[in-house]
Structure formats: C-alpha cells, structure tokens
Amino acid sequence: MKHPLALLGMVSALTLSSMAWAGASADEVEDLLARAAAAHEQALALEHGWAVTEPFMEQARQALADGNVDAAHELAQRALLTAEKSVAQAQSEAEAWKGRVLGS
C-alpha cells in the first residue's frame, strides 16, 4: 500500500511543481531575483558568497530581457537556492570549524 501512495504523492508533487513553474510570471522572477540578491549580499557580508550566485542572477535577468520567462524563472530559483545555501554555510560554519582544529 505504501508504494502506490508514495508514487501518487510524488506524481502530485511533481505535477504541482510543474504547474507552478509553468505559470511563472516576470513578477515572480523579479521577486526571486530580489530575494536572491538580498541573500547573496548577506553571504558576502559574512565572507561566504558563492561565485555561482551572481552569474545565475545575471543569466536570469538576460533570459527575462529576452522574453524567456520560464528559463529566467529556473535560473532565478538556482540563484536563490545557492544564495540561501551560502548563508546557511556561513551560519553552520560559525561553530563547525572548531571541530576541525587539530587536537580538538
């Protein structure tokens, strides 16, 4: 019983995700980009920026300018994801580095 339910759940999730993605608007892309930029700035302030975030943002802006909203949406999501991960890395490493010190 568990397998069919799990499969149904996965299909539903993918369908919903796909629908949400397909329905992306330029405004949503701009919102994602604004959130990505804010998170990236936070990471940079913590000296933990990732080099991939800004290129994703630039590519998303270019795709939006070219009228390719779907591609822009995907790229903006990647920018946001990497920016948020870089902030999370900074936060977790604030303590985690101590465990790597020789003799610790």
Binding site: W50, Q89, E93, W97, K98, R100
Partner: peptide, 17 residues
C-alpha cells in the same frame, strides 16, 4: 585567521585545511 583556515567556503564546501 585560524577560523578562516578551518572554515568551509564556496559551493564546493572546502576549508583550507
């Protein structure tokens, strides 16, 4: 400086150490 050396950075998640 020591913290920097042992801290993971970047998408590849590497510290100097």
């Amino acid at each position: 400086g020591k913290a920097f050396y042992y801290t993971r950075r970047g998408q590849l998640n590497f510290a100097c150490s």
